[in-house]
Computed example of a mutant assay.
Amino acid sequence: MRQACRGFTLLELMVVMVLIGVLLGMVGLATGNHSASLARQEANGLIQLLQTLREHAVLEGREYGLRLEPEGYQVLRLEGQAWRPAGSAYRLPQGLQLRLAQTGQASALGERPGQPHLLILSSDENTAFTLHLQTDQHVLISLSSDGLSEAALDE
C-alpha cells in the first residue's frame, strides 16, 4: 500500500505564485501614483474653495484674497484698508508644494506678509493665474483662471 504524499507539488506552488502576482499587479494599478491622486484631490479642493469665495464675494459685496505659501494657503478678507485672516491656514499634505505663475512669469510665494496673491472681487472677477501642485521633481497638476471664468484643471 502506498503512503499518502505530504506537501505541495511544484505545479501547485507555481499556480499560487502566479495568482499572488496577478493580485499584486491589480492592486498596484488600482492605487496608481499616490502623489498624483493626492495632487488632483487638493486641486479640486482649491477649485471648490475659489468658487465658494467668488460666490461669497458677489453675494456679500466683499473682497477676498488667497495668500499662498509653498506648503499651504490661507483665505483673507478685506476689512477697511487691511487684509485679515478669514479662518485658519491650510497646510498641504507632506511632499506637495504650490508654485504660482501670473502673466506667464513665476511669482515668489512668501513675499509681502499678510497680503494675498490672488484676489477674488465682489465684481465677480479674480486675479488671472496658473497654480501648479508639484513635488520637488515635477509638476503633478495645474489649475488656472483667466480672471473672468471659474478656475479649472489644466490637463
Rank of each mutant, 00 (worst) to 15 (best):
S107D: 03
Q74M: 10
N33K: 14
V15F: 07
Q105N: 14
G7N: 04
P116D: 11
Q51L: 12
R91S: 14
L13I: 12
L98W: 04
G61M: 13
C5V: 15
Q41V: 02
L10Q: 07
Q134I: 10
T127Y: 00
L13N: 06
L68G: 08
E12D: 04
L29K: 04
R62I: 05
A152Q: 11
R67V: 03
G80N: 08
S145L: 02
R84K: 13
A57E: 09
Y64K: 05
L23E: 02
A36W: 13
E111H: 05
T31Q: 03
G25V: 00
A108I: 13
G65P: 13
M26V: 01
D154L: 12
A57H: 08
M14K: 09
T31R: 09
L140F: 08
P116K: 04
E155L: 14
D124T: 06
E55T: 15
E60W: 06
D124P: 04
L109F: 04
G72R: 03
H138V: 15
T52F: 07
Q115Y: 13
E55G: 11
R62S: 12
T127S: 12
G65I: 13
Q51P: 07
H132Y: 08
R62C: 06
Q102F: 00
L153N: 01
L46Q: 05
L59N: 15
A101V: 07
A4P: 15
A36M: 15
Y73S: 00
L68I: 05
N126M: 11
L38F: 02
R40Y: 04
S122P: 11
Q51S: 13
Q97R: 14
E12T: 03
S107T: 11
H117K: 02
Q41F: 02
P116I: 08
W83R: 05
A36L: 15
D136V: 09
G110F: 02
L98H: 05
M1Y: 07
N33D: 15
E111R: 14
Y73K: 00
Q94H: 05
M17F: 03
R6K: 07
A128L: 00
P113H: 09
T9I: 11
F129P: 00
G114I: 01
Q102M: 14
V15A: 14
E42C: 07
A36S: 15
I141Y: 01
G72Y: 03
L53H: 08
G7W: 02
G72Q: 06
L96I: 11
T130M: 06
G87M: 06
L92R: 05
Y73G: 01
F8G: 01
A89E: 15
R54W: 11
E12P: 00
Q134P: 10
G61F: 14
L50F: 12
I120V: 15
Q51G: 10
H117I: 01
D124F: 09
T135V: 05
R84A: 14
R54T: 08
V18G: 01
P85D: 09
H138M: 11
G45M: 08
T9C: 10
Q94G: 00
W83C: 08
A43C: 03
M26F: 04
R40K: 03
L78N: 08
G110E: 00
R6A: 07
S37F: 09
Q81T: 15
S35M: 12
L98E: 06
Q102L: 09
G65T: 13
H132D: 14
E60P: 05
S144C: 09
P113W: 11
R62Y: 10
L133Q: 02
R54S: 15
L118M: 02
V18F: 05
L19P: 03
